[in-house]
C-alpha cells in the first residue's frame, strides 16, 4: 500500500524526516551537554568539547541511587497501569456495549476528573489516604493514578462502541457469558487502542510530579520526577546534573517504548483482564 502516494505525500514525508531529525538533534544536544562538566556548560557554552566524561552519571547512579528511583517509578507505573486498564476497560465496555438510561450522564460523569486542577482536591484526598494509613506509601500514589480513569474511559468507550455487534451476538448464541465475551473477544479486538491508551497514560503516570510530592516523603520511595526536579529547581547551579538526569530518565524509557511496548502492553492486558 506504499506506492502511488503522489508528490504531496513525498513532501510530507520529507518534512517529517526533517522534523524528527530536529527532535533527535535536541535529544543528542541534551546528551552531549550532559557529558560536560558544569564549568564548560556555563562559561564555554558553545565552545569545542573538552573534558567529556561520565562523572555526572556516576554521581546520579552511585550517590543519588538513581536506580532506586527508577524501580519505584516502575512499580508505581506497572501497578497503576494494571489497575487503570482494568477499571477503564470495564467501565468503557459497560458504557459502550449496553443500552441504558443515563448513559450520557455516565459519560460526562467520567469526564469530570479532567475538569478540575489536581491541586484543588488534594486536601480531602490526603485525609482519605491518611485514614487508610497510606501516607508515605506507594499505594496512595497507585490508587490515585490508577483510578484517574477519565481520559481512558472517554477514549476507549468510543472504540468499544465501534466494534462489530455481530461478534457479541454470535458469542452469546454460543453460550458465552458476558465476562467471557469481554475478555476473550472484545479486549483482543481492541488491542490497538488499548495500546494507545496504555502509552499515553504511562507517560502521564511516569511524569507525574505533584501526587508523589505530596504523598511520598521517604527518600526510599521517591520517584524519578522528584529526582529530576531536585536538579531543575536550581537549574543553573546544577545544570550538568539536570541534563544528565533528563537523559537518564528519558532514554531508557524511549528504548523500552520503541522495542518492547508491544510485549509490555500484552502483559498489562493480561494482568488486567485475562488474569
Amino acid at each position: 500500500m506504499n506506492k502511488h502516494q503522489g508528490k504531496a505525500a513525498g513532501f510530507i514525508k520529507a518534512f517529517l524526516w526533517i522534523y524528527c531529525s530536529f527532535i533527535v538533534f535536541i535529544l543528542g544536544y541534551i546528551t552531549y551537554n550532559s557529558l560536560r562538566p558544569k564549568s564548560q556548560i556555563l562559561s564555554n557554552t558553545f565552545g569545542k568539547p573538552t573534558g567529556l566524561s561520565f562523572d555526572n552519571y556516576k554521581k546520579l547512579i552511585i550517590d543519588d541511587k538513581f536506580f532506586r528511583y527508577f524501580g519505584n517509578s516502575a512499580i508505581i507505573l506497572i501497578a497503576s497501569l494494571v489497575l487503570l486498564i482494568l477499571l477503564s476497560s470495564l467501565t468503557a465496555y459497560g458504557i459502550a456495549r449496553y443500552k441504558f438510561k443515563m448513559k450520557k450522564f455516565v459519560r460526562i460523569f467520567f469526564l469530570i476528573g479532567l475538569m478540575f486542577p489536581v491541586q484543588l482536591g488534594i486536601v480531602p484526598i490526603f485525609l482519605i489516604m491518611s485514614k487508610l494509613g497510606l501516607i508515605n506509601n506507594m499505594a496512595s500514589v497507585i490508587l490515585i493514578s490508577g483510578t484517574n480513569v477519565s481520559m481512558p474511559v472517554f477514549m476507549l468507550s468510543n472504540f468499544f462502541a465501534g466494534l462489530p455487534k455481530e461478534m457479541q451476538e454470535a458469542a452469546q448464541i454460543d453460550g458465552a457469558g458476558e465476562w467471557t465475551i469481554f475478555q476473550k473477544i472484545m479486549m483482543p479486538l481492541a488491542k490497538p487502542v488499548v495500546m494507545a491508551v496504555c502509552i499515553t497514560v504511562s507517560v502521564q503516570i511516569w511524569n507525574q510530579f505533584f501526587i508523589p510530592l505530596i504523598f511520598i516523603q521517604s527518600d526510599k520511595l521517591k520517584t524519578i520526577p522528584l529526582l529530576v526536579t531536585k536538579y531543575t529547581n536550581n537549574l543553573m547551579s546544577s545544570i550538568n546534573l539536570a541534563l544528565a538526569i533528563s537523559v537518564l530518565s528519558t532514554i531508557p524509557i524511549l528504548i523500552i517504548f520503541i522495542f518492547f511496548s508491544n510485549k509490555i502492553i500484552d502483559g498489562v492486558m493480561a494482568g488486567a483482564v485475562k488474569g
Binding site: 470495564l90 467501565t91 465496555y93 459497560g94 460523569f109 469530570i112 488534594i122 486536601v123 482519605i128 483510578t147
Partner: peptide, 19 residues
C-alpha cells in the same frame, strides 16, 4: 452493564469525584 460499571464508579467516585 452494572457489573462492568460498578467497580469503576465506586473507586473513581472515592478517589476522584469526592475530593
Amino acid at each position: 452493564y452494572l457489573l462492568f460499571l460498578t467497580p469503576g464508579i465506586i473507586l473513581y467516585s472515592i478517589f476522584v469525584i469526592y475530593p
